[in-house]
């Protein structure tokens, strides 16, 4: 455990440093994951490049039809931001169950994404919002859909010198709602046994599903969208029966592991229950909006 800590002032400087010290360099922001991994000797970087204070990466920007979240935004900022109390509640709900306040005051949403843990709580909501990432690297900027970004447990298509600078997603149409559910052994300070994010849009009639995006964490090598379950629901009446079937399909699509936190079988059962409940919550929320 011995490294140099660099504190670049701009994204360009950061990328230059990463290039100079690659492959032994690693970016660090809030450090809530990186420092633990260093201490547990899981990683041993020779150079840490502190991006926590880079300018322009901590804003929540709202346009007419979209949001852009700076990658350095802290969970606690998401939790307390008024924009996420309506139909984007999934973000608030996911942000508020990550660690304790102490972690949420410093850990960044970008860090959670690039960390690509199968159980990362903030990834399913963004998958359910069909978010894409803005990435800056030596060759300039690029954009990639989040669902293509994470490729496996702890693995992304980010090159070691690239930085995720922001996360963008479209606002939801009318008659939409979102929800996030998490199960763990305790009610706080948990790594998800399973987490589910749902985004439901109803048809104009408000009785059938027009668009459904589901995302499931901790039940597969990476957080995933159960496409069969989503597809099944399109045009179906929104309600217990169809939601339960979607849950069943989602459970079928999951490929959980057994570990010290739960067995694969229990995780699969949870997926079914939680998908159904998350959709039911969305439906209730849409109805409440319309009241």
């Amino acid at each position: 455990m011995s490294f140099d800590l660099h504190r670049p002032a701009t994204v360009t400087e950061a990328v230059d440093l990463a290039q100079r010290f690659a492959p032994t360099a690693r970016y660090v922001a809030g450090g809530t994951d990186t420092v633990i991994q260093i201490n547990r000797k899981k990683i041993d970087p020779a150079h840490l490049i502190d991006v926590a204070c880079l300018p322009g990466m901590s804003e929540i920007t709202e346009t007419a039809d979209a949001f852009a979240l700076g990658a350095l935004i802290k969970y606690r900022s998401i939790e307390t931001h008024p924009a996420f109390r309506g139909n984007l509640r999934v973000l608030l709900e996911a942000a508020s169950v990550v660690g304790g306040h102490q972690v949420r005051n410093i850990a960044t949403i970008g860090g959670n994404i690039v960390n690509a843990s199968p159980a990362a709580d903030f990834v399913p909501p963004l998958l359910a919002l069909d978010a894409s990432l803005d990435i800056t690297g030596p060759k300039g900027r690029r954009s990639v859909a989040l669902r293509d970004f994470i490729v496996g447990p702890g693995r992304t298509n980010l090159s070691p010198v690239e930085i995720v600078t922001s996360i963008r997603f479209a606002k939801l149409p009318a008659r939409s709602a979102t929800a996030f559910l998490k199960e763990g052994r305790r009610r706080a300070m948990e790594i998800s046994v399973v987490c589910v994010a749902a985004c439901l849009t109803l048809e104009v009639s408000a009785s059938r599903c027009a668009c459904v995006r589901l995302a499931i964490g901790a039940a597969s090598p990476k957080a995933f969208r159960p496409e069969q379950a989503e597809g099944y629901l399109i045009g179906k009446p929104a309600g217990n029966e169809s939601f339960a079937e979607a849950g069943r399909l989602a459970a079928e699509a999951s490929s959980p592991i057994s570990d010290v936190r739960a067995s694969a079988g229990y995780r699969r059962d949870l997926v079914a229950v939680m998908v159904e409940r998350a959709l039911t919550t969305c439906l209730q929320r849409i109805r409440e909006q319309n009241q």
Binding site: G100, R185, R186, R187, A188, I191, V260, R261
Partner: peptide, 28 residues
């Protein structure tokens, strides 16, 4: 009753940290 257990598998503790050794929080 509900959450705590040092889990052994083949003689090895599988949860030798406070992430996975589950003491009740204020929420529990």
């Amino acid at each position: 009753a509900l959450s705590e257990e040092i889990v052994y598998q083949d003689g090895r503790v599988m949860n030798a940290n406070l992430t996975d050794y589950k003491m009740p929080t204020a929420m529990d």
